[in-house]
């Protein structure tokens, strides 16, 4: 898996026929497949073709959701998970960002730390669980450590990549026009690295949820993972599936937020510009 992705390419030319067809369907096309699957699944469950022990009917999941939501337990669990995710992202992300900037701009810092970091990167962070439990026990610190570590690498690598790939001609231009230090960073280096930093952010969000799911199944008194684990003990498949759905929704939400932030800050980038009407 490469964690450094290419920057978004120029938007492809619109294909007129496809566009017209799609606008007629009003953008409903992407929903067609999931709706069909869920309808079939519900029908099969109602007809008794799928045992509810193994797979709950979609409606059962909805009831479970209602149940958890009205008791207030769901809000507590979602909040606990979101809090872990955000603190992991903040800690790991800001360290990765800072080191990425430092190593992108200073040869000394790069020579000192990059090789070590690249070596550490090859260890899958979940493989550290036994060690992490020995160090931190099974409490919040362990979860924070694992999430932060998972988030760290994509942000570090992409920030470094972004800073190193800022057009040297622009940096030279900045210097001729009297920029240095903070001004040069704020006007040239940071905006130039930003598209790549966003690629790192979106990669790291995926890793953040993945790490959290595993970390929460270790032990927790609240959180989506806790909810799923408890339900497994009582064979409540509907709640287990509900937990999966909520993980998926949270993941999607985080990605949408990152995407929105990206298109707001990168308006200058050709990929994010509205096409000019001819």
């Amino acid at each position: 898996m490469t964690l450094v992705a290419d920057l978004p390419k120029q938007a492809a030319l619109p294909r007129p026929n496809f566009e017209r067809w799609r606008s007629r369907l009003g953008g409903l096309l992407p929903l067609l497949l999931p709706v069909t699957v869920i309808a079939t699944w519900q029908t099969a469950s109602s007809l008794g073709l799928i045992g509810s022990r193994l797979m709950p009917a979609p409606l059962d999941v909805v009831y479970a959701f209602w149940d958890k939501a009205s008791s207030g337990q769901l809000a507590i669990d979602v909040l606990a998970s979101a809090q872990r995710a955000i603190s992991g992202l903040l800690v790991g992300g800001s360290i990765g960002f800072a080191l990425g900037l430092a190593n992108g701009m200073s040869k000394f810092s790069y020579a000192l730390t990059d090789t070590t970091l690249q070596m550490l990167r090859t260890i899958p962070n979940l493989a550290l669980i036994p060690l992490v439990i020995l160090w931190f026990g099974i409490g919040e610190e362990a979860k924070l450590f694992l999430t932060a570590l998972g988030v760290f690498f994509p942000i570090y690598l992409n920030t470094l990549h972004g800073v190193r790939n800022v057009d040297p001609q622009l940096i030279e231009m900045g210097r001729v026009y009297g920029m240095s230090g903070w001004t040069l960073f704020r006007k040239v280096i940071f905006p130039g690295a930003l598209p790549s930093i966003f690629v790192g952010l979106r990669f790291s969000l995926g890793i953040m949820w993945l790490t959290l799911i595993v970390a929460e199944s270790m032990a927790a008194s609240a959180g989506i993972g806790h909810m799923a684990n408890q339900a497994r003990e009582f064979m409540l498949t509907d709640v287990v599936v509900l937990a999966l759905v909520i993980y998926a929704l949270l993941g999607k939400l985080a990605d949408v937020l990152a995407k929105t932030l990206e298109s707001l800050t990168l308006q200058w980038h050709p990929t994010f510009q509205k096409p000019v009407k001819a």
Binding site: Q169, V176, P191, W268
Partner: peptide
């Protein structure tokens, strides 16, 4: 002193 290069070297984000 000022210089104009062969390429415009404009900041695309400004």
């Amino acid at each position: 002193a000022r210089i104009v290069f062969q390429e415009p070297r404009l900041l695309p984000w400004d």
